[in-house]
Design a protein around this nucleic acid. Structure first.
Lengths: 223, 223
DNA sequence: AATAAAATGATAGTAATACTTTCATAAATA
DNA sequence: TATTTATGAAAGTATTACTATCATTTTATT
């Protein structure tokens, strides 16, 4: 018997819970595939319906619009990553080692998690790198925030912030440093791939270099 | 006689040079106004034409599409800021003081520059904070980069990178640190305003606190 | 097994977006 | 003055982002 890993999602994100039906799981799976392949701008519910072999109307029964669907998969990613971090840093007492582990998990390639059958975490990671900020860079960010759509992201930053304080209890900017680590883990990756002049690892395109940069940045601050 | 400040723009960004006509300058001016007020997603050429009192077709004679127009105003902003930085750091020899000045210019509120009649820099700064990354977070970033649309941004990061090396000649990540400073100057501002839990200045909403955070981050790295 | 309830498919329709085309007129330039 | 160039006015198209209706299939309840 296979253990399916389960994440409790904010019910405000969907109209009908996509986990509860084959069609719903298909919507998530194929959305990730299509957004990964062609980006979020060119993604439409019509194309998604065709990919699945269903109708546009059926997709709209699950998600109000494509932005909500983006919020859903991004929130899913942060929740999943939170669990990964919890699992991987369990029993580690040294907060510096914990923080290093977190930086590595944030900045390096993600492998597909076999225990989640309809989510390809590797592709989802790439999506969060190039489309993740669009989940909150909108003029309805305030309302979305009230509806707690960014809770998984904020929780993750909160966790990282607390590890930062464990490293240096009088550090003045734990939350800002946490959000900097998270965003830069992704932006440096995007820049390395697409605008390499903005980084110092454009030639190798090796994400472990991003880890070294972030470690240098963070641990000189937490000395 | 008033001296008009002039920036040489990449001609690939437009179909017809907006600087060369009243209508063109109006397109820039009102685009900034509308994007500032309602965000880039809700901005359309139709609304812009109505605001100006012209037709959609006329706007399309200047810009291929609204993304090109975004690229234009964002590139304009980075060029303008590059000039500001040059002007404000002229005659400063100490690279640390220079870098502090740069951080301040990046992270704090921008005042409208009187020498540019049809560009409201204060609003443009806000636009670059919340919409700037969308200029390159597309699936055609590679082509846009080949067309040199991001040159002003890359030049600015290059300049900051060189000041970083002046501060510490053996620092390994001048470009990554430069792009981190630039992006975080804006993201911390956006977070402070919209998702304050991700920062340590959500209560005060004071952008000089962002400067202190970035200075701390940067100068511990460059010790 | 019968019935009710819920989910899906099929089809159609609407308003807005993102453009393109054409042609007349006005303004600038040679 | 002739000619090029820019703008306005109007119409048209394909796509997007939905909503509505109704028949059919699947699932849950008794």
């Amino acid at each position: 018997m296979k253990l399916e890993f389960h994440i409790q999602m904010n019910a405000g994100l969907y109209l009908r819970n996509p986990e509860h039906s084959e069609l719903g799981r298909n919507i998530i799976e194929k959305s990730i595939k299509l957004i990964f392949e062609n980006g979020f701008e060119s993604f439409t519910f019509k194309k998604l319906a065709e990919e699945i072999g269903t109708t546009e109307a059926s997709v709209y029964r699950y998600f109000e619009n494509k932005h909500r669907l983006l919020l859903y998969i991004v929130a899913w990613y942060w929740s999943w990553l939170g669990h990964q971090i919890n699992y991987e840093t369990k029993n580690i007492n040294d907060p510096k080692i914990k923080l290093k582990k977190i930086i590595k998990l944030l900045a390096t390639k993600v492998e597909d998690d076999e225990s989640t059958s309809y989510v390809n975490e590797s592709q989802l990671h790439e999506i969060v790198i190039s489309e993740g900020t669009k989940s909150y860079l909108t003029n309805h960010v305030g309302e979305d925030n009230k509806l707690k759509f960014f809770k998984p992201y904020k929780d993750l930053c909160g966790l990282i912030g607390s590890v930062i304080l464990e490293c240096k209890s009088n550090y003045k900017y734990p939350n800002s440093l946490a959000s900097t680590i998270v965003e830069m883990a992704h932006f440096q990756n995007f820049f390395m791939q697409n605008l390499p002049a903005l980084t110092d690892f454009g030639n190798e395109k090796d994400d472990t270099k991003i880890v070294l940069f972030l470690e240098d940045l963070v641990f000189t601050s937490l000395k």
